[in-house]
Simulated assay, not measured.
Amino acid sequence: MGSVGIDLSLKESATTSNGDKLIIKQTQKWANKLAVAQRAKNKKRVKAIHAKIKNTRLDLIHKFTTKLVKDNSLIVVGDVKSRSFTTKKTKLAKSTYDAGWFELKRQLEYKCKHAGCQLEIVNESYTTQTCSYCLKISDSSPKGRAGLGIRGWTCAECGIWHDRDINAAKNILAVGLDRLAVGIPSV
């Protein structure tokens, strides 16, 4: 059994250190039908569309987490707080709720308990900016909210090209493995 790191983001809800991605864009997919039903004041149809969005999201997350728990003995997740993305200062609330981070972590927690798999939640600071190969933060790495549009980058130190989310997931896994090596208990 292996170990895997998971980076939570808005573009793909979750990306693993081995490259698997969970893509949930249910709200956007159903937005037009929902808008039509809302303008028509068709409460029954609005309720049905919301239920469809929720059930599809739950199903996608369930399948993704089941595979992760089945294939790994250690799962390390970055500690992203959705509350920081849903304030009035940002326009990311709908995308954040659509990503389903809370539900993903909840399902991983109970599935890991049942399967005897270890779940670690770690601080993900600088995991996107740090090269997972040479462990340096270069000038070319994406930084802050301005760097959110950068999906891939080449490390100026070692020349390795990185997918932003896979690189972060690899660094999250490394942080989790380091914590276990020095005996820091789970969160």
Results as ranks from 00 to 15, higher is better:
Ala93Gln: 01
Leu68Thr: 06
Arg145Tyr: 07
Lys70Arg: 14
Pro185Gln: 11
Lys81Cys: 02
Lys170Val: 12
Lys11Glu: 13
Phe102Val: 08
Gly100Lys: 00
Arg151Ser: 11
His62Asp: 10
Lys170Asn: 14
Ser17Arg: 12
Trp161Thr: 15
Phe85His: 03
Trp153Leu: 03
Leu177Ser: 07
Gly144Tyr: 03
Arg39Cys: 11
Thr154Leu: 01
Lys29Thr: 05
Ile53Asn: 01
Arg145Glu: 11
Lys63Trp: 12
Asn55Val: 00
Gly2Val: 03
Thr86Pro: 05
Thr56Ser: 10
Asn42Gly: 10
Val122Met: 05
Val175Leu: 07
Gln26Tyr: 01
Cys117Ala: 14
Lys54Asp: 01
His114Met: 15
Lys33Ile: 01
Gly78Glu: 15
Thr86Trp: 12
Lys94Ser: 14
Ala156Leu: 03
Glu12Trp: 14
Thr86Met: 11
Gly116Pro: 07
Leu58Ile: 00
Cys131Gly: 05
Ala146Glu: 14
Ser84Gln: 10
Asn42Pro: 07
Glu124Leu: 02
Lys170Cys: 14
Val4Tyr: 09
Asn55Thr: 02
Lys91Met: 08
Ile24Thr: 10
Ala169Ser: 15
Asp59Thr: 11
Ala14Met: 10
Lys111Leu: 14
Gly19Pro: 07
Lys67Gly: 13
Val122Thr: 02
Gln118Trp: 13
Ala14Cys: 12
Val36Gln: 09
Thr27Gln: 13
Cys158Leu: 08
Ser138Thr: 00
Lys29Gly: 02
Lys81Tyr: 05
Gly183Asn: 04
Arg57Met: 03
Gly116Cys: 04
Trp161Leu: 15
Lys43Met: 10
Ala40Val: 00
Arg151Phe: 12
Ser84Gly: 02
Tyr126His: 13
Lys88Leu: 14
Cys117Ile: 12
Val36Asp: 08
Lys54Thr: 07
Asp79Arg: 05
Ile6Phe: 02
Ser17Glu: 09
Ser132Asp: 09
Gln118Ile: 15
Asn72Met: 09
Lys105Val: 14
Glu103Asn: 04
Ile166Met: 12
Asn123Val: 04
Thr66Ile: 08
Tyr97Arg: 10
Glu109Pro: 01
Ser138Tyr: 00
Gly144His: 01
Ala156Gly: 08
Leu34Pro: 02
Thr87Asp: 11
Lys143Thr: 06
Cys117Leu: 13
Asn55Pro: 00
Gly78Asp: 12
Val69Tyr: 04
Gly100Trp: 00
Pro185Phe: 04
Val76Arg: 08
Val122Ser: 03
Gly147Gln: 05
Ile172Cys: 04
Tyr97Trp: 12
Gly183Arg: 01
Gly144Arg: 02
Glu103Cys: 01
Ala48Trp: 06
Lys52Tyr: 01
Arg39Pro: 06
Ser95Pro: 06
Ile49Thr: 00
Ser95Tyr: 09
Cys112Lys: 07
Lys44Pro: 02
Thr130Glu: 06
Ile61Leu: 04
Glu157Asp: 11
Ile172Asn: 05
Ser3Tyr: 13
Gly159Asp: 10
Lys136Gly: 01
Val80Arg: 07
Trp153Glu: 01
Ala174Trp: 07
Lys88Met: 14
Val77Gln: 09
Asn55Ala: 03
Val175His: 03
Gln26Asn: 15
Leu173Met: 08
Ile23Leu: 15
Leu68Asn: 10
Tyr133Arg: 15
Ala31Val: 07
Val76Glu: 07
Val80Ile: 10
Gly100Phe: 00
Lys94Glu: 09
Gly152Glu: 15
Thr96Asp: 02
Ile53Ala: 01
Ala146Met: 07
Arg39Thr: 08
